[in-house]
Design a protein around this nucleic acid. Sequence first.
RNA 1: GGCCCCAUCGUCUAGCCCGGUCAGGACACAGGAUUUUCAUUCCUGCAACAGGGGUUCGAAUCCCCUUGGGGUCACCA
Length: 443
Amino acid sequence: MTEKVRTRFAPSPTGYLHVGGARTALYNFLYARRHGGTFILRIEDTDRERSEDRFTQAILDSLSWLGINWDEGPVFQSQRLDRYREAAEKLLASGEAYCDEDPEKGRAVKMRMPRRIIKVPDLVHDEIEFDASLNDDFVIIKSDGFPAYNFACVVDDADLAITHVIRGDEHLSNMPRQLVLYEALGLPAPQFAHIPMILGPDGAKLSKRHGATSVTEYHDKGFLPEALANFVALLGWSPGNDLEIMSIEDMCGLFDLSRARKNASRFDNEKLMWMNGQYLMNLPAERLAADIREYLVRKNVDLAGYDDVWMTRLAEAYRIRIKTLDDLYVAAAYVFADEIEYDPASMKKVLEKEGVLDVLSASRDILAAQDDWASDRLEERFRVFCEETGRALGKVAQPIRVAVTGSTASPPIFETLALLGRDKSLSRIDSVLKRLPTASSPE
RNA sequence: GGCCCCAUCGUCUAGCCCGGUCAGGACACAGGAUUUUCAUUCCUGCAACAGGGGUUCGAAUCCCCUUGGGGUCACCA
């Protein structure tokens, strides 16, 4: 018979959700979805010292943000103490576990490790052999009455009827202990799939010194959840063809543990950036506009006076030019600023040039005379101006661009002017005009 | 160090299980085209089977060894 698939993600609330944890959660989620199963969230809060409610909340938030939704739970281990005690009693009674008195730590319950070879079946590694006699007896109930990891994990996975445990390679060495517990408790063991770890760009275990490692940080830096989920999913798995951009829904239909790789992969920020850019380019305009608004508000940008229509235009103007929402925050800062900063190099390259004063003041007059500030009206007018004066559009656009944005790069100039609005555009050109004669006066 | 895992371009990977295509795609990088700037887009290029033994007519693919990388050795999970 084929039992109904049940998977779980079991983080401990001692920190934020790590990108590696996010991938583990995602794989468990995808595997359950793919097989019409159930995905369960369990919080392993048995370390009373380090567990914090705010981390539990942060992990829940990160999972939700990524679109990884759980069907059951969260189940808290701290609320199942009776169950662990009961299971421990059973092992104590059978003699497979015993009480261990430590003068300093107090009384704990330890499990006896048998002296034999233990074969560990694994969906990605096939079968691995461990010599259990190399392991010491291990604690199952700590002296504070809380269960130790391996014990709580086994009892819970059995109670929750988990069928597939998908977790990182770092847990491989726990397998002998866990298998011994399943056997002693008379519980059926689930199937295991140990997936390779995610390393930093330098091949060392991904850690804080590599920069951002938590989902929260990527959120803060303006990455989209779709892109991050898509990216981490591809670290250790691929659908087999050349498909790379996939929504979670797509992956739900494609994910397959038999296609999981065995070797560790490195976290390549460059590719994540590219992928985020791809999502930014293809997001529905309204959704992107909403995301941008949310991001800018989070950055304390005053958005009073900017409606959704305007925000959507901003989104359209910038989506192909940015890799993250933060890029937009930086690139479009001039829009919201009262006083803009002029990049010295841009000033020198464009404004402090022979004849620019004439072009700019002529442009200023044209703009001042324009009532219709729509970008294509502005463009029509300037095309005529260029035609009449025999100038290339670029020669006219660049001085204006630097004058109103402070730099040489921006969306198409007329769209930029339209976004900026008549007042800001004109006053910025005026102020540049005022300081220009001194700057470019003939020596 | 003991035990365990792993090994294709710089990176993510397809191909491996069921040996036989110029070892394919993507990121990055380098050229070029388009373009009012930036970017996008489109071409082109660069670049890998860790090494050594086997097995075989034939090995990236199967086996062994070496080397290299990683994980783990807690009353942390």
